[in-house]
Nucleic acid binder design. Structure first.
Lengths: 338, 338
DNA sequence: CGGCTTTGATAAAACGTTTTACCAATATTC
DNA sequence: GAATATTGGTAAAACGTTTTATCAAAGCCG
């Protein structure tokens, strides 16, 4: 049913080798006549090479694997988009894996993508504190197969893998410092899961800013969320109970939750409560009270990740990776105390 | 470097055939001893089969191709997420293509995915009015290769392809009817590109509702947007110039643009202007003035698309496809006139 | 013990390409 | 006109699997 190179060869009376040579434009001594005829027949027959076969022999698939926790999440959607674009522009196609809440699934994809001969892998897996056995196994698998790996938003993962990461600590510091400068002292925190490196780092920045200002750290002001809207909704009543005058949410989604909950409590932001988010999603500008937030450039970081894998595929040496830095976008949701 | 089935065979002293049989758990008469040893050795050596080779011989790749205009768009992000999940749960992996504003690119992906032996394709390409040559070529390519295709949000594309579509006309009707019922007569419309079937359908619904209420259609009230935030921002001043009392935006993003612009004009929604959106994205509930919107269930539709391809891959017959229906979520952005 | 089954395993073809080494025919040189 | 170089093209191996038909050895029967 599908037309193969053999069909083309038979049809135009040349050998398979000749057809392949011509179609791939290899330098070789094939007469102009043969060349023309082959090109014409291949076109007419609508011949398309089987990439599996090509990949098998050339060891090149022009495919990279992309593993993210959740594509429908703003941050990762942006990131995926940038990666997809960068790859496309370099002739690469992306295999997508979204593992949701199943940590194991991430590594199933990892293995599967290697089996499918992806030439590189971008892994966006907020790492828990230590590398598990499974993780080690995957990295060593990749290493033995010489498949370059880029970890997204991790400071370091394993040797031989580059990481495109982000200075979450500086972000936490910036947000907190801003609130302190505005006179706030009781600053609530809505964190992410406590075993997540990126959440811990933000918290470290928060503590650092406090301590610089001579404010004691109060664990009562910390609410552990899960980066979801609902976490923000639930955090607000608790933190109000702690008499906070400001809240630093570890991502914008949770800040949105605070907005939403605040309406129920007749609370005005920023009059009654200052609020800082993290990620600086586009949405922030559209809100009635635009959200002050820490920038976290998903697109740029995604693009960079893609560049890094592609570069490694091209033979670039394994380096240390690259670190992105945050800045603070001050908008209407924060205000001088009193 | 990578361990192949030959390596395993050599290592444990059996033939490649035997190893393959055991590893794939084929019913065949292999001694328990051999079986045990092979399993053990394969495990120890960390053997993983090359999927390209497997695909070449079995003609199965357990891969489907997904083509969307823009992953970072809420609607498609939701859709992709659902598809990815459904596929994963059925042992399929997705190849992702996002073609942005380049129509041609969509078909480049289409061909590329077929070449890569995707077993099915989901194409989310808001079709312009007529099928182009290229499109026809792609569909016939898929047909000859017996690769099932599902078009997303198209009423029909070509024979042999199922479509998962949405009744945009009913959506347009619902939104408009609602505004009319509230007493509005001069209702502005922010449409999508005028050659897009789905935009035309919404418009048809709009006109139908008007005519049922005996209101004359006024082309001056139509502003052609591009489904972007900025389109909404730009549309507002124009429509205000036409003295509208309500606006129906063909998607929520453009409605957000109206919100944003309204702030600059000191306009209160819904006091001074009623606003209805389309898509009913999660965000709508979070807004200070929650947006009344027409539901458009991206997740459910994505899941259904995946089910349809998977079913066709399993030998299910080509049917007519399936049509999703809208409903109206009334929230705070619309209000009785005067 | 000779023929027939059963058991356990394998050789080899196939999937659709790329690529290298080689070959036959023609042209060139002296 | 023989030796040599050039031209145009191809055969065949390789990539890493799956699968079918076949084979050798062992077991069974009378």
């Amino acid at each position: 049913m599908r037309v193969t190179i053999k069909d083309v060869a038979r049809e135009c009376g040349y050998s398979v080798a000749t057809v392949s040579l011509v179609l791939n434009d290899k330098e070789s001594r094939i007469s102009a006549a043969a060349r023309a005829k082959i090109l014409k027949v291949a076109e007419e027959m609508n011949f398309r090479p089987n990439r599996l076969a090509v990949g098998l022999v050339t060891q090149k698939t022009h495919t990279i694997g992309l593993i993210v926790p959740d594509i429908s999440n703003f941050h990762f959607a942006e990131m995926c988009n940038a990666i997809e674009h960068e790859c496309r522009n370099n002739g690469y196609i992306v295999l997508l894996g979204s593992y949701g809440s199943s940590d194991d699934q991430a590594y199933e994809y990892f293995k599967e993508f290697i089996d499918k001969r992806a030439e590189g892998i971008i892994l966006a897996k907020p790492r828990l504190t230590e590398l598990t056995e499974k993780e080690k196994m995957c990295f060593s698998l990749a290493q033995r197969a010489r498949v370059p790996v880029v970890t997204f938003e991790e400071f370091k993962a394993a040797k031989g893998v580059r990481s495109v990461s982000f200075d979450f600590e500086a972000g936490g510091y910036l947000a907190t410092k801003h609130l302190i400068d505005l006179g706030h002292r009781r600053i609530g925190c809505i964190t992410g899961q406590s075993n997540m490196v990126s959440s811990l780092a933000r918290l470290k920045g928060y503590k650092k800013a406090l301590s610089e200002a001579g404010v004691d750290f109060d664990p009562q002001l910390i609410y552990e969320g899960e980066f979801t809207l609902d976490s923000g909704v639930e955090a607000l009543p608790y933190l109000l109970g702690q008499n906070v005058t400001a809240i630093f949410a570890f991502n914008d989604m949770m800040a949105m939750g605070v907005y939403k909950a605040a309406r129920n409590y007749q609370l005005k932001i920023p009059t009654d409560l200052s609020l800082v988010g993290f990620d600086d999603i586009d949405l922030n500008e559209i809100l009635e009270v635009p959200l002050t937030s820490v920038t976290h450039p998903a697109g740029a970081m995604g693009r960079e990740s893609a560049k890094q894998v592609l570069n490694m595929i091209d033979g670039g040496e394994r380096e240390h990776g690259i670190l992105f830095h945050p800045s603070l976008k001050v908008r209407g949701s924060t205000r001088k105390l009193r």
